[in-house]
Design a binder for these strands. Sequence first.
DNA 1: CGCCAGGGCCATA
DNA 2: TATGGCCATGGC
Length: 214
Amino acid sequence: MLTFKEVYDNLYCYYGPQGWWPADTPIEMIVGSILVQHTNWRNAEKALQNIKDVLTAEALDNMPLEELAYRIRPSGFYNIKAKRIKTFLDWFKKYQFQIEKIRHFDRDKLRKELLSIQGVGHETADVILLYVFDKSIFIADAYARRIFHRFGYNIPKGYDAFRIDVEEALSSSDMDLYNEYHALLVEHGKVHCKSDPICTGCPLSTYCRRLIHS
DNA sequence: CGCCAGGGCCATA
DNA sequence: TATGGCCATGGC
């Protein structure tokens, strides 16, 4: 059985640096993390394009809910997601829409705050923590579960249990490591595990091969 | 055509 | 704690 670190090294060696997340600004990152909930990134990006001209916290805050919902339709669940973006902005407004007023918060304190926002669950909170606030955290998403399961790991049921398992095994506070790890797992999941379940050519193919579909 | 994607909330038991 | 229904578009 490979360690989590060895899995990372193999993926990094094979796919190279990913340079995530594809967002130009923090607010784009945050909105994107909501738009992509249970949604293909292609669709989330289409929605993002439709609000490209108003991608500031102030502009989105001033936009009527109905217009926002209409614009982000391609991402699906658009009524709910529009509300979630608005709810996030209500929280963000308490800090005058200033990332720098929040960045110094302790990781777990900020995580609790984010989780208290309606529509921000574990994964969305962790994506924001990692890619907006530069906190070291492992994103224990569906890809991570699926891929590690295929590699033969026993994955604990709860989101946090899984996340903490990986973090303790890595015993690292290297933000760049977590950043790359998430990106690499998504890349691996997208490129290989769907079209090519045994990951031909990938150094991890022997581990993919033995496994069961999720 | 049917299936499902980088979730999260809520109701029920 | 743990399922199940719900939200919804677009790509394959």
